[in-house]
Nucleic acid binder design. Structure first.
Lengths: 73, 73
DNA sequence: TAATATTTATCGTTTTTCGATAATTTTTTA
DNA sequence: TAAAAAATTATCGAAAAACGATAAATATTA
């Protein structure tokens, strides 16, 4: 799946742990971990909003589309 | 909800209609319309991927977090 | 105004989030 | 290096939501 989730960089910038971010986003650490590590297949905008709010960033900072090389158009 | 979906700009850039984009993304025009007009509450990464692929853009080009003014942090 | 495109709505099915929880693994710290 | 803490992974069930199919309404275009 060439949608890449990268929350780690912003977390490092904000110096916030997964546990703390989970608490502020109001989601369990287990579920945030799943999302953070690219195991989720979708995301609710309410969750995305909370993450962006707490990390003070844009969706584009944590979600990337990386076309695979076979997909040249 | 301060997550703003803006697919129109990229569609205009690529000169593609909603119907055509829907077909290429393999989703019904009705559902793409819902997504495009901010009526959806979530998105599957598979759908986001297909949209980015067909519009040749990044998630950040079509999804924006706009904090509301009461939300000053 | 007629044709076409888009939006809105409803229903049912399927998918997926997410909580709760526990176990496992990794990382940090003393 | 051993213990503690944090993060990851897994499972189950409930709730939410995507999405298809379809039709109707509205808007746009020719």
């Amino acid at each position: 799946m060439p949608i890449i989730i990268n929350i780690d960089v912003m977390m490092a910038k904000r110096k916030i742990s997964l546990g703390d971010l989970a608490e502020r986003v109001d989601i369990t650490p287990a579920n945030l971990s799943i999302l953070k590590n690219g195991k989720a297949r979708a995301i609710r905008f309410s969750t995305l909003e909370a993450i962006c709010r707490e990390l003070d960033c844009q969706p584009g900072d944590i979600i990337e589309y990386r076309p695979d090389d076979t997909d040249n158009r």
